[in-house]
Amino acid sequence: MTFQELQPKVTQITLNTSLSRDEKLLTICQLLSDSVSYYNWVGFYFANHESKTLHLGPYVGAETDHTVIPFGKGICGQVAESNANFVVPDVAAQDNYIACSFTVKSEIVVPLFVDGKNIGQIDIDSHVINPFTADDERFLEFVCAEIANLF
């Protein structure tokens, strides 16, 4: 399924009044995981600005021990500070990377803004080296913009 075909499905999930916010987020994770072959782990982290930590939210994929990540640590922690997308074509070449699994080869993290504030991010791991393109970034920015309406 193309990103263009996925967009209305994401919107439909966010507008579903019978689901809680976390159920909507989990459903979006499942949709992306099922629809994009190289999206092998899809999840959300949410910021606690007082403690400067990220906390794992709904996700689909292998279990992770990384339920709390300090700002600045790993790819997610760096995005919490930079407020910018971060695409890692090969995690083995990244110094400040928190290894989740030896199967993870690349990662993309896109921040989630609500009223101009970075409240969290969508994090996607892939078992493929360098699969992410500018199209992935634009699509995930769209996803985050849709999700921002839930807050």
Results as ranks from 00 to 15, higher is better:
T2C: 04
T2Y: 06
Q4K: 14
E5Y: 08
L6D: 05
L6V: 09
Q7G: 01
V10L: 04
Q12G: 01
Q12Y: 11
L15P: 00
N16M: 08
T17E: 15
T17R: 14
S18Q: 13
S18L: 12
S18M: 12
L19P: 02
S20W: 12
S20D: 08
S20C: 10
R21G: 00
L25P: 01
L25I: 10
L26F: 14
T27C: 03
I28C: 02
I28S: 03
L31A: 05
L31H: 04
L32E: 06
S33Y: 15
D34K: 14
V36E: 08
Y38A: 03
Y39I: 12
W41D: 05
W41V: 08
G43C: 06
F44Y: 12
Y45D: 03
N48D: 15
N48R: 05
N48K: 08
N48A: 06
H49Y: 09
E50K: 12
S51L: 15
S51C: 04
T53D: 10
L54M: 15
L54V: 11
L56R: 13
G57S: 04
G57C: 10
P58I: 07
P58L: 06
Y59E: 04
G61F: 13
E63R: 11
D65V: 12
V68I: 15
P70F: 07
K73P: 00
K73A: 13
K73Q: 14
G74Y: 13
I75F: 06
C76V: 11
C76M: 07
C76H: 03
G77R: 02
G77D: 02
V79E: 00
A80M: 10
N85Y: 06
N85K: 08
N85V: 15
V87P: 03
P89G: 08
P89N: 13
V91N: 10
A92I: 07
A93N: 13
A93Q: 15
Q94W: 14
D95H: 12
Y97R: 08
Y97N: 06
Y97W: 13
A99D: 11
A99Y: 10
C100S: 10
C100N: 11
S101I: 09
S106R: 02
S106N: 02
E107K: 07
I108C: 03
V109H: 01
V109Q: 01
V110W: 01
V110C: 13
P111G: 01
L112K: 00
L112Y: 04
D115G: 01
N118M: 02
N118P: 08
I119P: 00
G120Y: 02
Q121M: 13
I122D: 00
I122A: 00
D123L: 07
D123S: 11
D123R: 07
I124Q: 02
I124V: 15
I124P: 01
D125S: 03
H127G: 01
V128L: 11
I129K: 14
P131S: 11
T133C: 07
A134W: 06
D136K: 06
D136P: 04
E137Y: 04
R138E: 14
F139W: 09
E141A: 09
E141K: 14
F142Q: 10
F142W: 12
F142G: 08
C144G: 02
A145P: 01
A145T: 15
E146K: 11
E146V: 09
I147Q: 00
I147R: 00
A148L: 03
A148D: 07
L150R: 10
L150A: 05
L150E: 07
